[in-house]
């Protein structure tokens, strides 16, 4: 395992102590993510991660660590590769024709792209919630039971479903209509159902790809509260377009941008990775500062 402490991981270009102007966006930094004692270590990490789609280099040279039972936010403008990086963490990019990964992605020290690793097993341990709520056209119960059923954990299914729905703060709203179709739920409820579905397989890591971008502010707030609960049990990695959201919920933040390479192709690049408080109040890189203060992106 490399770089066991995130504080050591700094952008090489960091000028010391640049004063920041964050007055324009009233950020309640660390609102829901109070600084806690250092966690047990990294649940996942990437080393020299390069991702290609065919010949096109989408993301280059990403080194990140995702601390155990902490929330890590990936932020940056569109096309910066943050979702691509997220999809590498549970090998969802395997499903994209032509996608290729170089470098290492480790899960508790094991390279998930290494020989003998089954992507199905990877995804059972590293769950995912998508941008748009994507419940199956089945009943609420069957949606949550889907994961346990396909993984063969069919014992005590009712309990598993109830626990998952409680975990996703949805139980009280749906306990009387478990047999109804999931499409009868509101968008925010559907997204919490998708979270319940993801945690029903008892994963270790939860990846969230802009989970609130299709939701209204109230539903968004519920999901953010929920993330604060879930982080007791899960390591969470969230991609978000919403900087305030990153500031509110995450412990660490990675800022990506799209940098033109020598051929002029825009390649996703990790600019800066640090504690969220540091990124938002005292970013080391000018590009981070410009982005979070709204001058760019």
């Amino acid at each position: 395992m490399v770089n066991p402490g995130k504080d050591q991981h700094m952008s090489p270009t960091s000028p010391p102590g640049t004063a920041q102007d964050t007055a324009g966006i009233h950020l309640a930094v660390g609102d829901r993510a109070p600084e806690q004692p250092r966690s047990a270590g990294a649940a996942m990490a990437t080393e020299n991660l390069h991702v290609y789609y065919g010949d096109f280099l989408a993301v280059r040279d990403v080194d990140l660590q995702f601390d155990d039972r902490r929330i890590t936010a990936l932020i940056g403008p569109s096309g910066c590769g943050k979702s691509t990086v997220l999809r590498c963490l549970n090998r969802m990019n395997d499903l994209v024709p032509g996608a290729r990964v170089e470098g290492r992605v480790t899960y508790h020290g094991t390279d998930i792209y290494g020989p003998g690793v089954d992507e199905i097993e990877v995804r059972r341990r590293i769950g995912m919630v998508f941008q748009k709520p994507n419940p199956f056209p089945k009943s609420i119960y069957d949606n949550v039971a889907y994961g346990p059923r396909v993984t063969g954990a069919k014992d005590h299914l009712d309990d598993t479903v109830e626990q998952a729905l409680r975990g996703a703060a949805l139980w009280d709203e749906v306990k009387d209509k478990l047999k109804q179709n999931a499409y009868g739920l509101s968008g925010g409820q559907q997204q919490r159902l998708c979270i319940a579905r993801a945690i029903a397989t008892r994963p270790d890591v939860l990846l969230m790809d802009e989970p609130c971008s299709a939701l209204d502010p109230i539903a968004t707030s519920k999901i953010e509260d929920l993330m604060g609960e879930l982080v007791q049990d899960f390591t969470i990695v969230i991609v978000t377009h919403n900087m305030q959201q990153a500031a509110r919920v995450s412990h660490s933040t990675a800022f990506f941008t799209a940098q033109p390479d020598e051929h002029g192709d825009r390649v996703g690049t990790l600019v800066e990775f640090d504690r969220t408080l540091k990124i938002f109040e005292d970013p080391a890189d000018k590009r981070t500062e410009d982005y979070i203060s709204g001058k760019f992106g």
Binding site: M92, E121, R123, F130, P135, F136, R149, C194, R197, T201
Partner: peptide, 27 residues
């Protein structure tokens, strides 16, 4: 059938056969 449903199934650790028979086929 939207790709998002297949992604949702794969992300839960389902293989192709389960995804086809239990998500795509009913949908």
């Amino acid at each position: 059938v939207p790709q998002a449903l297949r992604s949702g199934s794969y992300a839960l650790g389902a293989n192709r056969r389960m995804t086809t028979l239990q998500v795509v086929f009913p949908a």
